[in-house]
Write a protein that binds this DNA or RNA. Structure first.
Length: 909
RNA sequence: GCCCGGAUGGCGGAACUGGCAGACGCGCUAGCUUCAGGAGCUAGUGGCCUCACGGUCGUGGAGGUUCGAGUCCUCUUCCGGGCACCA
């Protein structure tokens, strides 16, 4: 008799697993594969129970699949580049590599302490040249395909990170994803972009493939982020200034032409400027009362310069004379740079003094500049249809622009009385609110009377025929800016030569190594730029003096394809062997936090499609199933080092053992939900494991001597991982015939065991209700205790078998204890050689069932009958029950509803 | 504003396709054991009424479908998350 000593047991089995290379895997096309993966951690600070939960969930999946006979790939690695390492290095006067490697060592030690079943030979670290050279290789391939380009543009700058951020890294409407209290600033910087937009349509469309296997909210967030809008582009010609004074007219069209920048997409040499607008509601175009440009639209400056001094127009619809407009424009351009709360800001704008021609009805509409029109979205220009759009309504009402109605509600009814009258089609009546839904076109020329959808269709067609527009789909998604002005990342493999311009580093010169000893200042200039040895190189083309690109890549590049590297982690000829990736991919199960719903998970999908087009892989999507686990919280907020509310994983392992820690995180809440850490509750898991240990310990002695116990295993199984042993139920596994039980007690216990096995198996397969699986096992253990002393009425082989089932069911969750119990139960081979047990339906079957009897839908009693009893038998028995009979009270039975083995409802009236 | 989730005892949470609501655990109460504490074992534990048998209410709220609703439908409140002058 001994006590459960997790620390001893855990060390012992971790050693055995390692000696026997239990978790090492190779691609083997003859075996069914299963690739399960937890998102790779950023090694920083301490590994806490939040991390632990993630890995515990992943390990259950890996171990269950292994027991199910799959060839399981379950690797681990480190997202090792990144800002925190650099900042910590500056603070502690060390090197980011030192800091990172120390953390990796620490993380690794704790993960090993928890006995996660990783194939450690496949460990990768993204900060090693053997890894990041392939980031550079991919970059060069994208450069060749035009998927990487450099552009000066307005980008997000985080003053704390001292670097540019991708749009995906800007959260909560303008804050840094790492510094949620820090607003990003807009800066004009030339940087590298990866053309995610080239795959926008595919990234959106393929989400359908993921429906059902990815969480709905992740799909919804990605859809939202990609933001498809189907509509049309329409060209409004800028009207010539026939009302101008003679002097201005004399300068004529040439002046206008030369001053105005060309319209977007204007075909070379097009004489008159035109404004291209994007709309999702071309059907409302007859109601356009203005064209509004973004303040930084390229046409604005030219239009202002040529805009008429028209006192009458100024008085009527504009608020600024010519000079005022220019001042106003500067104001608006400045204020739009600050990423203020744009959504709530008041609509603001001014008339440019020029007019545009609506191509559908040749009407002259004033051209305005508006603060709510974004250059970044669509064409940077809109038509304002105040009667049918909230924002246009607000804007036009403020400036007294007409609000013509061109869509009437389909039914003659609408929400309020006031709108009812207004939406009857008089285009000069003034509505109190815009009608933004689809309806019937009115006052829209030949399109009047059409439904909105039809009108849109026809008008887009006609615009195309007439050469003044076309159908168009646009996306909110923008290209991924990957340049970072920091040290600890992958150098961008590009060289600038005075003679040859931008020259890619040839493949043979990869990797471009990070300089070993940089000057780290954290002050917003890439530290690489200050290293002459790094920067000054010979041009690969002409051999002349040239400079390297001094920026590094966003670390999300590293994590966009790392899971392919696990398939072939030491390949020095290619990022990976396509044959190996073809075997393992797609990832069968990916597990991680919701935080990466659009960052990592969108970039990874993009990368996969690029690799497919490079011929490296054949699949469209890298991740077949995604699971987003909940966070571990303490005091209502997620555990994090910065909040100071972490519970260290190692601390838990020392106090209760790894198995208790694992079990608790699996039991306390379903895996997708957040879990509030409770020191009190973990005691329950600890008690349970002790309870299991004690009862196995008690019966193990006699069980070891059981004849047939060890022999019942398949002797061929030894050293053959492909054909693991499957122990069976001696001696009750007789096929067909009714098993002979020694006693009612024995039969009931075995029945409970197999019922539990059935449910636990089910909970592990897909449903992932680990918490209720554990609850089931607890019930079984309770039943074993209730059957004590088992010696009285339960044969040793049955006792042993029941305890084996408990052990096997616990094995994926508490693997160390399970191995120990397995050994105590007399097994010489490790539990890892054993397969998941099959439940025996015959043994699980109930002889008798208790059926609740309802009278008029209310439970009034229960009757016990043989399983499978028919309606009449149950009904007779129910009527004979005095309690139930009292409720029937001699009333006429109107209806009887009977569900086999479930319930009986007698309806009386 | 739009889009996703949620809401069940004192607490974490069960309840597979509509069929005994509250499994399992925590906490609490009592008994056994112990010098005592702890641990362990056993029993009890949704509210209200009742000495009791039993009754009655009960899954955020209001309606509805059904023999029967935590589960399905309509409306609604609150909480969490994402996106947001997206044309």
């Amino acid at each position: 008799m001994g006590d459960y000593k997790p620390q001893e047991i855990e060390a012992k089995w971790q050693k055995r697993w390692e000696e026997n290379r239990v978790f090492e895997t190779e691609a083997d096309p003859k075996k069914p594969k299963y690739y399960t993966l937890e998102m790779l951690p950023y090694p920083s600070g301490t590994l806490h129970m939040g991390h632990m939960r993630n890995y515990a969930i992943g390990d259950v999946v890996a171990r269950v699949k292994r027991m199910r006979g799959f060839n399981v790939l379950h690797p681990m690695g480190w997202d090792a580049f990144g800002l925190p390492a650099e900042n910590a290095a500056i603070k502690n006067r060390t090197h980011p590599r030192t800091w990172t490697n120390n953390n990796i060592t620490e993380f690794q030690r704790v993960l090993r302490r928890f006995g996660f079943s990783y194939d450690w030979r496949r460990e990768i670290s993204t900060c090693e040249p053997e890894y990041y050279r392939w980031n550079q290789w991919f970059f060069l391939r994208m450069l060749e395909k035009g998927l990487a380009y450099k552009k000066k543009s307005r980008v997000n700058w985080c003053p704390k990170c001292c670097t540019v951020l991708a749009n995906e890294q800007v959260v909560n409407g303008g804050f840094c994803w790492r510094h949620e209290d820090t607003r990003v600033e807009a800066r004009e910087i030339a940087q590298w972009f990866l053309k995610t937009t080239a795959y926008a349509d595919e990234l959106l469309g393929d989400l359908e493939e993921l429906e059902g296997t990815w969480p709905d909210r992740v799909i919804a967030m990605q859809r939202n982020w990609i933001g498809k809008s189907t509509g049309a582009r329409v060209f409004f010609a800028v009207a010539s200034e026939e009302k101008n004074s003679n002097a201005e007219a004399a300068e004529g069209p040439q002046r206008t032409q030369s001053r105005e920048q060309p319209a977007l997409n204007s075909k070379g040499g097009a004489p008159a400027a035109r404004i291209e607008i994007f709309t999702t509601r071309i059907d409302t175009i007859f109601g356009a009362s203005a064209v509004i440009l973004a303040p930084n639209h390229p046409l604005v400056v030219g239009l202002l310069a040529s805009g008429a001094e028209d006192p009458e127009a100024e008085r009527k619809i504009g608020h600024y004379a010519k000079q005022g407009r220019e001042r106003k424009l500067r104001e608006m351009q400045v204020s739009s740079v600050k990423t203020e709360d744009i959504a709530t800001a008041e609509k603001d704008g001014f008339f440019t003094g020029r007019y545009a021609i609506n191509p559908f009805n040749d009407e002259r509409v004033p051209i305005w500049v508006g603060n709510f029109v974004l250059m970044e979205y669509g064409t940077g220009a809109i038509m304002a249809v105040p009667a049918h759009d909230e924002r246009d309504f607000e804007f036009c009402r403020k400036y007294g622009l007409p609000i013509p109605i061109v869509v009437a509600p389909e039914k003659e009814r609408s929400n309020t009385e006031s709108t009812e009258k207004e939406h009857t089609g008089h285009r000069d009546s003034v509505p109190k609110e815009p009608f933004t839904e689809y309806g019937i076109s009115v006052s829209s020329g030949k399109y009047s009377g059409l439904k909105s959808e039809q009108a849109s269709e026809r008008m887009a067609e006609d615009a195309k025929k007439g050469g003044f527009g076309k159908k168009e789909t646009i996306y909110r998604l923008r290209d991924w800016g990957i340049s970072r002005q920091r040290y600890w990342g992958t150098p961008i493999p590009v060289i600038y030569c005075a003679k040859d311009g931008m020259v890619p580093v040839p493949d043979k010169d990869l990797p471009v190594l990070l300089p070993a000893n940089p000057q780290l200042t954290g002050e917003g200039q890439s530290p690489l730029a200050t290293d002459p040895e790094f920067v000054n190189v010979k041009c690969p083309k002409c051999g002349g003096p040239a400079r390297r690109d001094a920026d590094t890549m966003d670390t999300f590049v590293d994590s966009s394809w790392y899971f392919y590297r696990y398939c072939d982690p030491h390949n020095d000829q290619a990022p990976f062997d396509p044959a190996k990736a073809a075997y393992w991919f797609p990832i069968d199960q990916y597990i991680g936090g919701i935080t990466h719903a659009i960052l990592h998970l969108l970039y990874s999908r993009f990368w996969c499609k690029v690799m497919r087009d490079l011929g490296l892989v054949k699949h469209n999507e890298p991740i077949a199933r995604l699971f987003t686990q909940g966070m571990v919280q303490k005091g209502g907020v997620a555990m994090s080092k910065s909040r100071g509310n972490v519970v260290g994983a190692e601390e838990m392992a020392q106090k209760y053992g790894a198995d208790t820690g694992r079990l608790y995180t699996l039991f306390a809440a379903p895996p997708e939900k957040d879990l509030e850490w409770s020191e009190e509750s973990i005691e329950g898991s600890w008690r349970f494991l002790n309870r299991v240990y004690r009862v196995v310990d008690k019966h193990a002695g006699s069980a070891g001597e059981v004849a047939g116990g060890e022999k019942s295993q398949d002797p061929c199984s030894k050293n053959e991982p492909g054909a693991p042993t499957r122990s069976e139920d001696p001696p009750l596994n007789t096929k067909g015939g009714a098993p002979a039980a020694a006693s009612e007690k024995e039969k009931a216990l075995l029945r409970k065991a197999h019922q539990t096995l059935r449910r636990v198996t089910h909970d592990f397969e897909g449903r992932w209700h680990f918490n209720s699986a554990i609850a089931q096992i607890m019930e079984l253990v309770n039943a074993i205790y209730a059957a004590e002393p088992m010696e009285d009425g339960v044969r040793p082989e049955v006792r042993k078998r029941v305890l084996e089932l408990v052990t096997l069911m616990l094995a994926p969750m508490t693997p160390h204890l399970a191995e120990e119990l397995w050994e105590m139960l007399g097994h010489k081979d490790g539990l890892w050689t054993t397969r998941w047990p099959e439940f025996n339906a015959e043994l699980a079957k109930e002889d008798e069932v208790e059926i609740p009897v309802q009278v008029n839908g209310k439970v009034r009693g229960r009757v016990t009958v043989a399983a499978g009893a028919g309606q009449n038998e149950v009904l007779e028995k129910a009527k004979a029950d005095t309690g139930i009979a009292a409720h029937l009270n001699g009333k006429a039975v109107r209806k009887v509803v009977f569900v086999h083995d479930k319930m009986l409802n007698i309806v009386v009236g």
